[in-house]
Amino acid sequence: MIVFVRFNSSHGFPVEVDSDTSIFQLKEVVAKRQGVPADQLRVIFAGKELRNDWTVQNCDLDQQSIVHIVQRPWRKGQEMNATGGDDPRNAAGGCEREPQSLTRVDLSSSVLPGDSVGLAVILHTDSRKDSPPAGSPAGRSIYNSFYVYCKGPCQRVQPGKLRVQCSTCRQATLTLTQGPSCWDDVLIPNRMSGECQSPHCPGTSAEFFFKCGAHPTSDKETSVALHLIATNSRNITCITCTDVRSPVLVFQCNSRHVICLDCFHLYCVTRLNDRQFVHDPQLGYSLPCVAGCPNSLIKELHHFRILGEEQYNRYQQYGAEECVLQMGGVLCPRPGCGAGLLPEPDQRKVTCEGGNGLGCGFAFCRECKEAYHEGECSAVFEASGTTTQAYRVDERAAEQARWEAASKETIKKTTKPCPRCHVPVEKNGGCMHMKCPQPQCRLEWCWNCGCEWNRVCMGDHWFDV
């Protein structure tokens, strides 16, 4: 396979590697080409510095992935760790964990309700045991953590790749202090920090972006993250068709209702045909949960890209028209025109101005929308079919299609509260000796007794199943 190397943020060049090629071997190839010592090179990928003893497969490097290699003399205490030698983080029983690669970060837990604080980093599902597709590297999971809308060759929703760059020099040479644990960490600028490894760059702020994971991409090709779309790892039924499908869209209502993408497309087109989208002054033209839940309008309007190009163009047109109407304007009634106009409040005669090729020149009556006339309008008909009709959803289907309910059931079956801080902690095999993952707590306690870890627990039921 081919990976592209950008040395000291210059133009990239291809390097041929195998899945079992080590990072140090990659350094040696680059060092020979650039005429520099291999031990002064640092390989940066997806916000993480890659260790010498890791392989291309370990690092989730795919065909035509772009890695950054910078030349920086080692500072005291760094060289041993980078070589894969006596790194205290690798000691058996050590409590410190390697910062998780962005290629394996899962933010789907952050669609849980606000009262489930902490689960994004504490609760991990076991539903990723799908067998890898044919042709994928051994052991590589097909679980997708992110979804994007690819405006490039795909023109559809695709699995996405999370990447990070330095907000100062805009190069992907920043190593994160810690990985993101929720969508806010990724979507809110300057929320996460790190250290830029580019020479002479003092940058410390992280800037995240997404790429389409279905095809090789260049540095400049980015895609918009659709953070309401998630892999259906909890096997929730769709609120409309009641099938279990994946991926799904999880509405931001209190129940976190789930809808499959085909039904979401149908829901949007139906509402669009009836012009029953909601115009929100802050958000724009949007839709609420299909069950009509309060405070559930979709905030990231790129989710409506699921409509496809033709329907999305209609959505944008109707949204612009609705904006004009909300501002007190009118639409030209001549067939084939429909231009938005903003006449004076007491102006009865409205002319669709033909300047700049935008208007048709038609003069019409503001009251009856017919060709302009003197005197009273002959008839004014009330528009028919403008009443909002509820999208029919079966109550039982709505009850079963809740992301929140599956989460709470998982928590109930696989977790116990920490005796000190009461945060839910998952036990997935292993011994009875637990350690609270909350940095402010870190209590060592017994899963069996529910009390602080002691010699009695150690001698009596340390390794009970």
Rank of each mutant, 00 (worst) to 15 (best):
M327T: 09
P294T: 12
G114R: 13
V244N: 05
C368F: 02
A92I: 13
K413S: 14
R420Q: 14
L26S: 00
R140L: 09
F13W: 05
I66M: 06
F208R: 00
R348T: 06
P439G: 06
E395Y: 14
A397P: 05
V17L: 09
K27D: 01
V70H: 03
S193Q: 12
D106W: 04
G94L: 14
C457K: 01
T242Y: 14
P281G: 10
A405M: 13
G85T: 13
F24L: 13
L301V: 09
V164F: 10
D184G: 06
E310M: 07
R89W: 13
V67W: 02
P247V: 06
S167N: 10
L261H: 03
K427T: 06
A82C: 09
R392S: 09
G308L: 03
W447C: 05
L174H: 03
C293Q: 00
P189T: 06
F381C: 08
K48P: 00
S384K: 08
G118M: 04
G12S: 10
V121F: 12
Y318T: 02
I188E: 10
M327Y: 08
N232R: 01
P99H: 13
G160S: 04
C431R: 06
A398F: 11
G93D: 11
S218Y: 08
M192W: 02
L358N: 15
Q197Y: 08
C253D: 00
P281W: 06
L41K: 00
E322K: 04
R271Q: 14
L358K: 15
L123F: 09
E300N: 11
K161Y: 10
P437L: 07
N90K: 12
D53C: 06
A206S: 04
M80H: 12
C449G: 00
S9W: 03
C441K: 01
G284T: 03
N232Y: 01
Y372H: 07
R402E: 08
E444H: 15
L226W: 00
C95H: 11
C253T: 00
Q158G: 06
I188W: 07
T222F: 10
S255V: 07
D243H: 13
A38E: 06
L297R: 03
R334P: 03
S110C: 09
A371T: 10
I44M: 07
V278G: 04
R348E: 05
C212D: 01
Y315P: 00
V3T: 03
F362D: 04
G118C: 05
H265G: 08
T351W: 05
V324S: 06
E310R: 05
L341Y: 07
E322I: 03
C332A: 03
S108Y: 06
D185V: 01
T242K: 12
E195V: 12
N428P: 14
S108A: 10
R191V: 08
S22N: 07
V43F: 04
E49N: 01
P37L: 06
C421S: 01
S181W: 03
D394T: 06
C212M: 00
P133I: 10
N448C: 07
T173K: 08
K129T: 09
G203Y: 02
G12K: 07
L123W: 11
E300P: 14
A46L: 08
Q197H: 11
G354D: 15
S296D: 00
Q100P: 11
